[in-house]
């Protein structure tokens, strides 16, 4: 069974069709890239997969379960398993929260926080993404762009996801820093068998990192 199976996805903003009958499937441990110019619908597709933006029609199956017909309450227990990581690492972490609290938050929200073992779990997650656990005391603006993106990945991992939706995760980073974050994502995928829906406009990164690429243009798949 594919991890993610998207069929005939259509997303509209008012009268504009942002995603027009897009279909693809993603296996566990696989990286599928959505590539294309800005406005091609790749980010909207990501939001629809996550059911942040509800599609107008089409199917989104996650581990066999159809998501588009579920209510918000029915989606809640599934959401932890499909986690987004966005381009702007500063924008996706609250500026006022320490990194430690940002990583702990999903555990708390999901009722999986244990006061005894929680802090060690957070330290583990930070270590796992290559951040010294002492960074837990810092706030986002005290980290570099690459470190901040790592913190964002740690936060996503806190939910024990099986799918990461990575929306331009390395686009804002310098080349060497970008290489380190891509290596980290490759390591995590190997160890945890994560599926990656990888949205990226940089062709050389896509060619290097993705198992398969779908080209999008004007809301449609222009090449399989």
């Amino acid at each position: 069974m594919p991890l993610l199976d998207v069929r005939d996805l259509v997303v509209r903003y008012g009268t504009v069709t942002a995603v027009d009958h897009v279909s693809f499937a993603l296996e566990p441990g696989e990286t599928l890239a959505l590539n294309g110019p800005s406005g091609c619908g790749k980010s909207t597709t990501a939001l629809a997969v996550l059911q942040i933006r509800r599609p107008a029609s089409g199917e989104v199956r996650f581990e066999g379960q159809e998501l588009t017909t579920l209510t918000e309450a029915e989606l809640r227990p599934l959401r932890p398993h499909m986690q987004p990581v966005f381009q702007d690492p500063y924008g996706s972490l609250s500026p006022r929260h320490r990194i430690r609290d940002a990583v702990a938050e999903p555990l708390k929200v999901q009722g999986r926080w244990d006061t005894d073992s929680g802090p060690a779990r957070v330290a583990d997650l930070l270590d796992r993404v290559g951040l010294d656990p002492s960074y837990g005391d810092r706030r986002p603006h005290e980290l570099s762009g690459g470190q901040c993106q790592r913190a964002g990945i740690a936060r996503a991992l806190a939910s024990d996801p099986r799918l990461l939706v990575l929306d331009e995760p390395v686009s804002a980073l310098d080349p060497s820093v970008r290489a380190g974050v891509l290596n980290l994502l490759a390591d995590l995928q190997d160890e945890l068998g994560l599926g990656y829906l990888f949205i990226c406009h940089d062709r050389s990164v896509v060619r290097h990192f993705a198992d398969r690429v779908i080209e999008m243009r004007d809301g449609r798949v222009s090449s399989p």
Binding site: S176, A179, S204, R207, H208
Partner: peptide
């Protein structure tokens, strides 16, 4: 800097 570019990669792990 050049070594860390994906176009120079020989395998999935990039030099950093």
């Amino acid at each position: 800097l050049l070594a860390s570019l994906p176009e120079h990669a020989r395998d999935r792990r990039l030099p950093t």
